[in-house]
Structures are given as C-alpha cells and as structure tokens.
C-alpha cells in the first residue's frame, strides 16, 4: 500500500509543482493520473521514487517513509518500485536481455552486474518475463532494433524483474499508435491484477484512462481536484481539471473542421457534376 501525505514540491526556480497532495493506493489498484501539461503529474511520480526530491510531506510504501532515506536505504527502496517510461528509456545499445536484467541492479553486486553473471534465478525470471510479454525470441537483439510497442514491452519486463511492490508508469502510450497503446494498457492492467500490484499511471489520453483505470486522480496546477471512479469523470469535472477554454476551443475546433469538410465535399460534388 502506498500513501502520499501532504506532498509538496517547489523547484529551485520557485515553480510550485505540487502543493499538499494526499492520497492512498491500495494493493492491486491501478490509479490513472490525469491533468494538463505542467500540472505536476511527472513531478508527482518522480517524487515517489525520489528521482525528484520532495520539498515536504511523506511518502509511505508498506510502512516505510521514503522521504529522508539515506543513499543506501534509498537504493534499497528504489529496487522495490518499478518504473515504466514514456520514451521507453531502454539502454539502446544493450541487448534486450541486459535491459531486463538491469532491473536486478539493486540486488546484485557491481562485479556480478559488470561481468553480466547474474544469479540463475534472475536469468530464469528474465526469460519468464520476456515470454510473458511475448518477446522471448528477441532476448539477444539490441534494444534499438525493436519497434516502439516491443520496446515498451521490454520496459515492462525490466520493471517487473525488480519484483516490485509498486509500479510507477509515466505516459506509457504517448509515443505509440492507438492500437499498440491499447495493447500495452491491457498488458499493464493484466499484469497488475496477476500480481496484485498497485500502480500509478500518468496518462494524458482521457478516453484511454476512462477505459482502463479503476480510479482516476485529476491534478490541476499541482493540486488534487478530482479523485473518483471513471464514470464520475463528467464534462464538468474535466472542465475543472483542464479549464473551460480548452474544452470549448477543442469543440469549436472540431466543429470548424467538420464544417470545412462538408464544404469541401459539396465543392467536390459540384465540380464533379
């Protein structure tokens, strides 16, 4: 179980990314985090594993407060938290297998990782995970030889090889086409259910969030403005999250496009006649 309590992050430049954010995520629950660009989604999930240092507040993962841990304890805490990235963030010049095994870096010694001699259980787990995400035949390929969807599957396998207690997922589908996006989301949800894993998923695609998430948290300017189920996410709520202007602009934009298309079709018909 993850609980975030009164989390605040102010950057050195004075930008307040998060102000007094609190919520808890139960075991096996997948939470979607939506909000406009700059609302603090990315800062929030990076505060959880302290890739970004929180200014104040507490983050408790199964009882341990992650804020204020020393370097060694932080490493041990990080290895319990799997992270999946927008642009996959695989090490491009390493093989798929090395990328998956790199999820074990927090558990093995430097020499084991340097000589690529991982314990047998780690290697077996890596193969099992690659099989699970459907890439067992690609184990020896370099990561940059794979397509976007395949790379994100490797990213998932890497995160899972940590045997995590929590998954942090940052815009997992932002660089993928709609079909692959759905496949990746489905895979993520299945895996979280299989393992009873809690997950926080940053997502900017609202329909995709509504389709797959059990719970959605809306951030606006660093504060939680919505916390509920997908069907509670009405147009009014979306307006509070994203602001009124955007919605009307988007709708009139779509209407104008439609109008233009109709005009063009009429023109074509006239020319053809």
């Amino acid at each position: 179980m993850l609980s975030v309590e009164h989390l605040t992050k102010t950057y050195k430049t004075g930008d307040k990314a998060l102000s007094d954010v609190s919520f808890t995520v139960e075991k096996g629950q997948v939470v979607g985090l939506i909000g406009p660009s700059g609302a603090g989604k990315s800062s929030l999930i990076r505060c959880v594993n302290r890739l970004v240092e929180p200014t104040s507040g507490a983050i408790k993962l199964n009882g341990t407060n992650l804020v204020g841990l020393g370097a060694g304890d932080l490493r041990r805490a990080r290895r319990r938290i799997g992270m999946i990235f927008q642009e996959y963030a695989l090490v491009e010049r390493l093989t798929v297998m090395e990328n998956v095994l790199s999820g074990r870096l927090g558990y093995v010694s430097f020499w084991q990782s340097f000589s690529r001699r991982y314990p047998a259980t780690d290697v077996e787990r890596a193969y099992r995970l690659l099989d699970r995400v459907g890439l067992i035949d690609h184990a020896d390929k370099r990561a940059d030889a794979l397509s976007g969807g395949q790379r994100q599957r490797v990213g998932i396998a890497r995160a899972l090889s940590q045997e995590p207690e929590l998954l942090l997922v940052d815009e997992p589908t932002a660089s993928l086409d709609p079909k692959t996006s759905r496949q990746i989301m489905r895979l993520l949800i299945e895996i979280c259910q299989e393992r009873d894993l809690p997950a926080i998923v940053n997502i900017h695609d609202v329909p995709l969030a509504q389709q797959f998430m059990q719970r959605i948290i809306g951030l606006r300017a660093g504060a939680v403005v919505f916390d509920g189920t997908p069907d509670q996410l009405t147009e009014d709520v979306l307006t509070t999250i994203y602001g009124a202007e955007d919605w009307t602009a988007m709708r009139t934009g779509a209407a104008e496009d439609e109008q233009a298309e109709r005009d063009a079709a009429r023109e074509m018909a006239r020319l053809g006649a």
């Binding site: 490493r75 990235f85 963030a89 695989l90 090490v91 870096l105 558990y107 990782s113 990213g155 942090l168």
Partner: peptide
C-alpha cells in the same frame, strides 16, 4: 536512459556501466 537505470536502485558504478 540514465534515469531509468537509477530508478532500478543501481549504484553509481552500475549507473556508469549500464
């Protein structure tokens, strides 16, 4: 890529190597 490796709990030397 470095951020992803750091997020696994890698040490500084492992970060350099991976």
């Amino acid at each position: 890529q470095a951020e992803a490796v750091r997020a696994t709990g890698a040490s500084w030397l492992q970060l350099i190597n991976y």
